[in-house]
Design a protein around this nucleic acid. Structure first.
Length: 561
RNA sequence: GACCCUAUCAUCUAACGGUUAGGAUACGGCCCUCUCAAGGCCGGUACACGGGUUCAAAUCCCGUUAGGGUCACCA
């Protein structure tokens, strides 16, 4: 890798020196000097070892779960070291820009408590001293640096049309060559000053290309924080720095912005690995210290037995909003992702069941470095159940209500008008000793867990067997007379046993199993029949607790009906 | 096609030259004075293949195979 000095020498030797006239035509508008710009971006005052990292979303109206994963990882790294995590909006592709997209990203991050220290805010302002944090507002900064590169003779205008480039690529493909603007295919690289001038005066559209001095047969070696030592061919392609609309490409913007914003660590998906040689080359060209890179594996999905990266097009869960919409507990999503980052998370959680997720010490040296994990709903759901089981009934109530207010109006109304009762329902078999029911996965499921308390269930006669409807009525009437809301659990169950005997059922399992033909069934069947009358279901949480919460009046109504 | 990354149970993974290859999820079985859920106990399932190096290899090296990724005026 060459340093700035070597580039300067090289420039002198073989750089094309653009005439001042060309430079004026290329950059007709007044621009700040690079010195002026640099002065606005002083070194950050941070403790030793503090990481400055960022999430750089494109405002497409959609936050991909992979980007969220990346941002979360960057945020952890920054905040665990006392550093800074910021957001930078990469909107240099104006075609893909969608209104309100930044809000989508910010709201998603806020939902998960992954909080940026700097960047655009929901009200449209910027927070932080290293902005603007939206690339389209930084146009003249990129232009100023581009102009500098042109002055040094290391960038040149390219007049090739999209059609020409397309044709070129097809030719290269046909011949089995590497595609790209390099070597003899870099036609505009060797244009004379006169030719450039003529094109510019004729108003021919142009883009600015970097004059690569890389040799594809040589290798560049660098240390990736996650992948270790990586060796790739040098870049010899004259990549685009400034596009036809005057905005930079990702590559140039990345180098300029992360230099100015003092990013120390670039965390991104491993799909970026192939462009690291280019990026390092650009940092060297500018004479800047490159950040450390950390490329993580991509989240994948099984599709017809084949793996592929999670796709916006086919997988609804590729959109981070999916999880909020369906009422996934925030912490469960975070825990699941943390578990993919560090498998030791589970052990930590087991040892520290009550500590907040964000207190997990994410070990950067142990970030999994495999081919990329399959997104696993089964595992996520299991984590959800654990997370919900750890909550108090009131927390579950609050979180569910917050979800329902956006997603299920009917449920929200029901919950608001029956707050205490809902909490009592959600408290059934919760935090008894240190055990809890684990049948709630997401807020979406709550409706089904509480609905039967509020409306009289329909009863399927099939579930009342072996008794006839008449016999059921007799049994229910008998039980209604016996039931007392002040009974403790043992007394309650004792009465069910009495009822069982009275109607020809065995009052304990062992006896029934020993002589099944002597009985209509066991006490379990009696309990089932009562459960069906009261809840409409054959399966439910503890019937004793349900009846207590429901209240004697309602219980009797259901027994009679 | 070129280049890069990866390879341990079905899934996520631990192991950093010496382990009966561990855990979690899922699955199966048993137990648990009412079902379900939970809980307890038990169980099956993995080092992709082939060569080396070494007293010793899941671990290091090479190759094969397989999967993934990248090759834009998109990021």
């Amino acid at each position: 890798m060459k340093n700035q000095r070597e580039y300067a020498i090289m420039t002198k030797k073989k750089g094309i020196k653009m005439t001042p006239e060309i430079i004026d035509l290329l950059f007709p508008n007044p621009l700040p000097t690079v010195e002026e710009i640099e002065a606005k971006y002083p070194a950050r005052q941070l403790p030793e070892g503090a990481v400055v990292s960022r999430l750089a979303p494109s405002p497409t109206g959609y936050l991909h779960i992979g980007n969220f994963y990346q941002g979360f990882l960057a945020e952890r790294l920054a905040h665990q070291t006392g550093g800074v995590f910021f957001i930078r909006v990469e909107d240099t592709d104006q075609k893909r820009r969608v209104d309100g997209a930044v809000q989508v990203v910010l709201r998603a991050l806020a939902h998960y408590n992954v909080l940026p220290d700097e960047g655009p805010q929901l009200d449209g302002t910027d927070k932080g001293a290293y902005g603007p944090y939206t690339q389209s507002f930084r146009k003249e900064i990129y232009q100023a640096y581009a102009k500098e590169v042109v002055k040094r003779g290391l960038a040149y205008p390219c007049f090739c049309s999209a059609e020409e480039l397309d044709l070129m690529r097809k030719v290269q493909e046909k011949q089995g060559l590497r595609t790209g603007y390099y070597g003899k295919y870099a036609k505009c690289r060797n244009l004379t000053d006169e030719e450039i001038l003529a094109n510019l005066r004729a108003g021919k559209p142009w883009i600015l290309r970097f004059k690569s001095d890389g040799d594809y047969d040589k290798r560049i070696v660098f240390e990736d924080l996650l992948k270790g030592k990586l060796s790739l061919p040098e870049n010899n392609i004259d990549h685009v720095l400034i596009k036809g609309d005057g905005l930079p490409t990702y590559h140039f913007a990345h180098v300029v912005d992360d230099h100015l914003m003092k990013t120390t660590h670039v965390v991104r998906g491993e799909d970026w690995v192939p462009s690291v040689p280019l990026h390092l080359q650009l940092f060297a060209l500018m004479g800047w210290q490159p950040p450390k890179y950390a490329h993580h594996a991509l989240l994948q999905k099984l599709d017809n037995g084949k793996r592929r990266k999670i796709s916006k097009r086919y997988d609804p869960e590729a959109n981070i909003e999916y999880f909020a919409e369906h009422g996934y507990p925030q912490d469960a999503v975070l825990e699941y992702l943390l578990n993919l980052m560090n498998a030791s998370f589970e052990d930590w959680r087991k040892a520290n069941p009550t500590i907040p997720v964000m207190d997990f010490p994410l070990n950067f040296n142990k970030i999994s470095n495999t081919a990329g994990a399959l997104f696993d709903f089964v595992k996520l759901h299991s984590i959800c159940r654990e997370v919900v089981a750890r909550m108090t009934a009131e927390e579950v109530y609050n979180k569910t209500l917050a979800w329902a207010e956006k997603a299920n109006e009917k449920l929200a109304t029901l919950m608001k008008t029956n707050r205490e009762k809902c909490i009592a329902i959600l408290n059934i078999e919760r935090n008894i000793g240190n055990k809890s029911r684990k049948d709630l996965t997401k807020w979406e499921d709550v409706e089904n867990e509480i609905s039967y308390f509020f409306e009289k269930p329909s009863v399927d006669a099939e579930n009342l067997k072996p008794l006839s409807l008449d016999e059921v009525h007799q049994m229910a009437a008998e039980y209604a007379k016996m039931y007392s809301a002040t009974d403790d659990k043992d007394t309650w169950f004792g009465k069910i046993k009495q009822l069982a005997v009275k109607f020809g059922f065995a009052d304990n399992m062992k006896e029934y199993k020993a002589n099944p033909s002597n009985y209509k069934g066991s006490v379990a069947d009696v309990a089932r029949i009562l459960r069906v009358l009261i809840t409409g279901r054959t399966q439910s949480p503890d019937l004793f607790a349900i009846m207590q919460v429901m209240g004697k009046g309602e219980v009797q109504k259901r027994l009679e009906g």
